[in-house]
């Protein structure tokens, strides 16, 4: 058991060192949501009126509404970036090194996921810090309650990335992931608009958004930032995590013989 935790620590340490040495990746992870916050949200502020919906107890500006969604965006991109690096690792061989460790394969994959999640949490808090400088801040407890949610959301999105990486044969196919996973998942969620606003446009769109696990991840975070609990969202996120994690462990099962990327 001690050996398993040593392996987990080694994996987390490796990801942390890599993250620290890749400053460009850190800056990019912050610039993306900040552009949305400063440019996109400022433009939409005038166009979009938001009524009072939980967890908000008063009228809010669009910038305030969009912040949890942008935190989700940071974690979504990080999850997919991890997936990209896994496909790269597989082509380059370091995935082989990981999978030939004498630790249980599910544990190795989970450790990899956890390492990616911790990196994404640093990115999210850095983004929240900058958002705070723009006047969008939360209570200290809100930041604290967000932590377990960010862990859960990071694991869920990372597990999705992990599963996708087991199905992508070549690095070149990653562009498809951007088009068919990241964008629909982000735009068809409550990241940018609340469900009732979506329903005004189309009930079908609203239903898709309500089914999207990413919506629930964002709502769970939105509520946590306001020191509130959203049980339905929690169940959705946990169930989605279970499904994605199960699928990725299946994806990396040696009996499937797909690890060689053939």
């Amino acid at each position: 058991m001690r050996a398993m935790f040593r392996a987990m620590f080694a994996i987390i340490l490796r990801e942390t060192i890599r993250f620290v040495s890749q400053r460009g990746r850190f800056i990019a992870s912050l610039v993306r949501p900040l552009v949305w916050l400063v440019v996109f949200a400022a433009g939409f502020r005038a166009a979009l009126g938001l009524s009072i919906t939980p967890p908000y107890q008063t009228y809010i500006t669009y910038e305030i509404y969009i912040v949890p969604g942008l935190c989700g965006m940071v974690q979504l991109f990080n999850g997919m970036q991890s997936s990209l690096s896994l496909v790269y690792d597989r082509e380059m061989g370091s995935m082989r090194l990981l999978l030939t460790s004498p630790m249980p394969r599910w544990w190795l994959l989970f450790s990899k996921l956890l390492a990616g999640t911790l990196v994404s949490i640093v990115q999210v808090y850095a983004f929240l810090l900058i958002a705070g400088l723009f006047g969008i801040d939360f209570s200290l407890l809100g930041y604290l309650y967000a932590l377990p949610v960010l862990i859960l959301n990071g694991l869920m999105l990372g597990a999705l990335g992990l599963f996708l990486s087991s199905t992508i044969k070549q690095l070149e196919n990653f562009a498809g992931v951007m088009n068919f996973v990241i964008f629909p998942m982000f735009f068809l969620s409550t990241a940018l608009y609340p469900l009732w606003k979506m329903a005004e446009a189309s009930t079908l769109l609203r239903d898709i958004c309500a089914f999207n696990p990413f919506s629930h991840a964002i709502e769970l975070l939105r509520f946590a930032l306001y020191e509130q609990f959203n049980g339905t969202a929690l169940v959705w996120v946990i169930v989605s995590l279970g499904i994605f994690l199960g699928a990725s462990i299946w994806g990396y099962n040696p009996a499937r013989g797909k690890i060689l990327g053939r």
Binding site: A7, F9, A10, I11, L13, L98, S101
Partner: peptide, 14 residues
């Protein structure tokens, strides 16, 4: 050293 340490960790050594 970091590369070797990572590998040692994967094999449960520390």
């Amino acid at each position: 050293q970091q590369n070797l340490s990572y590998f040692a960790g994967l094999h449960g050594l520390s």
